[in-house]
Simulated scan of single mutants.
Amino acid sequence: MNNIIKGLIAGTIFGITSIIPMFFMEFEDKQKAIIASFVNRFSIGFIIFNIDLPIQGWLKGLIIGGVMSFPDALITKAFKPIMALGLIGGLICGLLT
């Protein structure tokens, strides 16, 4: 299986995992928030599998997960859950590369 397929699978799983708890939360524009969360987490999983950096996979995952989660954390001011999920998911995807 090539990295594009692995990235699509990892991104889809990470994206779905991130939106499941959102269905039980209340916020202003739930549909947009769910779509944005899915796209962000999908991108993290996809990019980790398809970027070539000269570092260990787990570190690549932490860096990509952290960098891509930081803007959402700034906008929403929900640093802990957004950064934690981005770093943990990035780490897991990086370990799988």
Rank of each mutant, 00 (worst) to 15 (best):
M1R: 11
M1H: 13
N2Y: 11
N2H: 11
N3M: 15
N3C: 15
N3T: 11
N3R: 14
I4P: 04
K6Q: 14
G7V: 07
G7M: 07
L8M: 15
I9C: 13
I9Y: 06
G11D: 03
G11M: 07
G11Q: 06
G11P: 00
T12N: 08
T12P: 02
I13M: 06
G15F: 00
G15Q: 01
G15D: 04
G15V: 01
I16D: 12
T17A: 15
S18T: 10
I19P: 00
I19V: 09
I19F: 03
I20T: 13
I20N: 12
P21R: 06
P21Q: 07
M22L: 12
M22D: 14
F23I: 01
M25Q: 12
M25L: 14
E26T: 08
E26M: 14
E28V: 09
E28P: 00
K30T: 00
K32W: 08
A33E: 08
I34T: 08
I34L: 04
I35S: 08
I35D: 10
S37P: 05
F38N: 01
V39W: 03
V39N: 02
R41Q: 06
F42L: 05
S43W: 02
S43K: 00
S43V: 01
S43C: 12
G45A: 09
I48K: 09
F49Q: 10
N50R: 15
N50M: 14
N50W: 09
P54Q: 10
I55A: 04
I55N: 03
I55E: 05
Q56L: 15
K60M: 01
G61K: 06
I63P: 00
I63T: 10
I64W: 05
I64M: 03
M68P: 00
S69G: 08
S69Y: 03
F70A: 14
D72G: 14
A73K: 03
L74T: 07
L74I: 10
L74E: 05
I75P: 00
T76H: 04
K77G: 04
K77F: 06
K77W: 07
A78K: 11
A78D: 15
F79C: 08
F79H: 12
P81Y: 08
P81K: 07
I82A: 08
I82P: 00
M83I: 12
M83E: 06
M83H: 10
M83C: 08
A84S: 15
A84K: 14
G86A: 11
G86H: 05
G86N: 06
G89Y: 04
G90W: 11
G90V: 07
L91T: 13
L91F: 13
C93H: 06
G94E: 09
G94A: 12
G94Y: 04
L95S: 12
L95N: 12
L95Y: 13
L95R: 13
T97C: 09
